[in-house]
């Protein structure tokens, strides 16, 4: 299982546009992708409602995981979105 740990840099946290872009990107991947806040319970990264419910704010750390072919590529993209200011 590959994973990335990043700090959320956007002022709005992983809400609003960053959350939508994150979920849209995850949805395109033919793999299961999860995201967790800090050491918390991972949720489906393709679910906007689950991602919003994590209530990830600026400065929080998230852990994104995926398994299978292309996992590293999708995780790199998601890590970039999550950490964009």
């Amino acid at each position: 299982m590959a994973e990335r740990q990043v700090t959320v840099e956007a002022e709005v946290g992983l809400h609003a546009r960053p959350a939508a872009t994150f979920v849209q990107t995850a949805t395109k991947a033919p793999l299961d992708v999860t995201v967790a806040k800090g050491g918390g319970q991972p949720v489906n990264a393709k679910s906007i409602l689950a991602v919003l419910s994590l209530d990830v704010r600026q400065g929080d750390t998230v852990v994104i995981k995926a398994e299978g072919e292309g996992a590293d590529e999708i995780l790199d993209q998601l890590a970039l979105i999550a950490s964009a200011p």
Binding site: A16, R17, A19, A20, V23, Q24, N44, K46, S47, I48, L49, A50
Partner: peptide
């Protein structure tokens, strides 16, 4: 467009 796009994602939410 951003706001309505996010709402469209809610309507298509797999968990929902």
């Amino acid at each position: 467009q951003d706001i309505l796009g996010a709402q469209a994602l809610m309507a298509r939410d797999p968990g929902l």
